[in-house]
Design a protein around this nucleic acid. Structure first.
Length: 587
RNA sequence: CGGGGUGUAGCUCAGCUUGGCUAGAGCGCUGCGUUCGGGACGCAGAGGUCGAAGGUUCGAAUCCUUUCACCCCGACCA
């Protein structure tokens, strides 16, 4: 491709609305044009990067048994009602909808379990056809509450989504592991350092899932690791062991403790330490978190109790509450009136015995130990044990794990890293097939629901993640496998027929060798061209300049390695650089 | 949706507090000339409904009201 035809426009300054390096560089280098909030036009270079990532991902998914198809983006409401998810996606307003002239509503695909399960129920009739895995690379829509970070979080994006169907849990396990391996290989081929972590299943559901994270400080997800045992989990999911609370000189059970004006744990502890209980710590208190759970059947009040020195993990809590009242669409804080209705007192003095539809105690709490908890009476706490309140309560792990906690699988502390969620794999079981009647006839001659798995990779997000991992002060440094072009040939002067002739011939020969090459035929100063190609991040640069008189070209990688090479050896040399880099990424 | 902020040239921004001449700068763009290996220089130019609507005023980018858009912090997720 000739640079003049590409109409290359680069910016010297960072765009005002960009926060993270990938957004800045992709915009400055002309890959990305903002069309609206969370809506981007992909320039020619970005289109090529995304296509390359798509191709690598497709090859690996196909290698794991995937069959590529294309599903509709507009999906009928009735299909989503069959799985029961229409209400949930509307309540959380995750799905964008459109209405046709007849008044029929459609969801714009945020994911495609319904469509593919409907397809599978039509296609699959016998166990002899199983397993099968359909996948696609298509645009997805999500009504993001807050799009941000350039390509990272947008309303419209490109995703690889795969769905597998099985006759047994064992078969699902096999495919799940094959997908996990395919993901690992695909990310490596894209030049990305990724790792798998245990994750919450969220709106997709199912029994278990892993997320694939790209390590990056700007990542929106916190991951807790235990290097020795290999434990790694999203903080939303992470379990932890909490050391027992230290003993304190508690009064008799049931003793009321006046705590005038002390509403927060800190205030209560500080007040009581100064008023007769010097060895009290926040670990000896009980924190009440009052929430309202929205379900398809209406709101339910929730009281969650964790140790006073810890925070509630709302994802874990939501899952625990779902066990009792059905799927929780959303948790929100109780307003003051609701708190008064539940406790009979002002906010800040809630404790066991209050009136809520669902009461959850963290599993780590010692039921017999005396703790300081709200007495459901203004300006009063009490020394209580939760044992008497467990009867109708849920006991579950609802504590937010933090770095420094003891890892669940033994000794040692959890450490925190941040990551960008690039992919997710789920074991769905029969959630969708049972709801939608997708069944097959087994070897036993009976009808069984299909067992399912699903798998997603944020293809366009990967492009941004790659820039986060591969850049320097001069711009992007693409891995060879996903660079928009592999090589650029830069004649230092457009008006020098000799230089242009040498550059032109090299360009033609490299193209003939199957190399993706750009000829920079722009009439610009050499410095301008060099800056542009560094910013854009083309892996190999060949300069036809002052060395040509001596029969040399300068060949350098984007990392700055290389030097003069005889013109006669240039094609072989460049082809070698490209092939070696590609081979290294294949591993 | 709650909290904070910003809308002025293609891009990055000044001007607004305290209303006043033809609304400015840098980058980018056009022409000419000199340059030509890491974002050159000189000269001459083009480019703006100051987000939108309404109001106050002799006079509004500036003050008031309404509204829209975008960005940041929180809840959603590939």
């Amino acid at each position: 491709m000739r640079a003049r035809t590409l109409n290359i426009v680069t910016l010297r300054e960072d765009p005002a609305d960009a926060e993270i390096v990938s957004h800045k560089l992709l915009t400055r280098a002309g890959y990305l044009h903002k069309s609206g909030a969370g809506l981007y036009l992909y320039g020619h270079f970005l289109k090529r990067v995304v296509d390359k990532i798509s191709r690598i991902v497709a090859e690996e998914i196909a290698g794991a048994g995937g069959v590529e198809v294309t599903m509709p983006i507009m999906q009928e409401r009735s299909l989503w009602e069959r799985s029961g998810r229409w209400a949930g996606f509307q309540a959380t307003r995750t799905m964008l909808t459109v209405t046709d002239r007849g008044g029929q509503e459609f969801g714009l695909s945020p994911t495609a379990e319904e469509v593919v399960t409907d397809y599978a129920s039509n296609q699959i009739t016998s166990y002899k056809q199983l397993p099968v895995c359909y996948f696609q690379q298509h645009t997805k829509f999500r009504d993001e509450i807050r799009p941000r970070f350039g390509l990272m979080r947008v309303k419209e994006f490109i995703m690889m989504d795969a769905y597998s169907f099985h006759g047994s849990e064992q078969s699902l396990d096999d495919t799940y592991q094959a997908m996990r391996q395919a993901y690992t290989t695909a990310f490596r081929r894209c030049g990305l350092e990724a790792f798998a972590v245990e994750a919450d299943t969220g709106a997709i559901g199912g029994s278990s899932s892993h997320e694939f994270m790209i390590a990056a400080d700007v990542g929106e997800d916190a991951i807790l690791f235990h290097p020795d045992s290999g434990y790694a989990a999203n903080v939303e999911r992470a379990e932890c062991a909490i050391p027992a609370a230290p003993a304190w000189s508690a009064p008799a059970a049931g003793t009321a403790l006046p705590t005038p004006g002390a509403k927060t744990i800190d205030e209560v502890v500080t007040y009581l330490q100064a008023n007769g209980y010097p060895d009290l710590t926040s670990a000896n208190t009980l924190k009440a978190v009052l929430l309202v759970a929205e379900t398809v059947d209406g709101d339910r009040t929730v009281a969650a109790f964790v140790r006073g020195d810890r925070e509630v993990n709302e994802i874990k809590l939501s899952n625990a509450v779902s066990q009792r009242v059905g799927e929780v669409l959303q948790l929100r804080a109780m307003d003051e009136a609701a708190v008064r209705a539940a406790t009979g007192c002002a906010p800040g003095f809630a404790g066991p015995g209050l009136n809520a539809d669902v009461v959850v105690f963290d599993a780590v709490l010692d039921a017999e130990a005396l703790v300081v908890a709200g007495a459901n009476q203004d300006d009063t706490h009490a020394a209580v044990s939760i044992a008497a309140h467990l009867a109708d309560a849920v006991q579950a792990d609802i504590t937010l794990a933090v770095a420094g906690d003891v890892a669940p699988a033994g000794s040692g502390e959890l450490v925190e890293r941040r990551g960008i969620e690039a992919g997710h794999i789920f074991k769905l079981g029969t959630k969708y097939s049972a709801a939608m009647g997708a069944e097959f006839t087994g070897e036993d001659g009976k009808r069984h629901p299909l067992t399912m798995g699903c798998y997603g990779i944020g293809t366009s997000r990967l492009a941004a993640a790659a820039v986060e991992q591969h850049n320097d002060k001069n711009g992007i440094v693409w891995p060879m496998s996903i660079a928009p072009y592999q090589v650029v040939v830069v004649p230092t002067r457009a008006d020098d027929e000799n230089l242009m002739g040498v550059a032109q011939q090299l360009y033609t020969e490299l193209k003939a060798q199957g190399i993706e090459v750009i000829l920079d035929d722009r009439d610009a100063k050499p410095g301008v061209k060099f800056k542009d190609w560094d910013l854009i991040g083309i892996p190999v640069k060949v300069v036809a300049g002052r060395g040509v008189a001596d029969g040399n070209l300068e060949i350098k990688t984007r990392q700055g390695e290389g030097g003069d090479v005889a013109i006669s050896d240039a094609v072989t040399h460049v082809v070698g650089l490209v092939r070696d880099a590609m081979a290294a990424l294949r591993g």
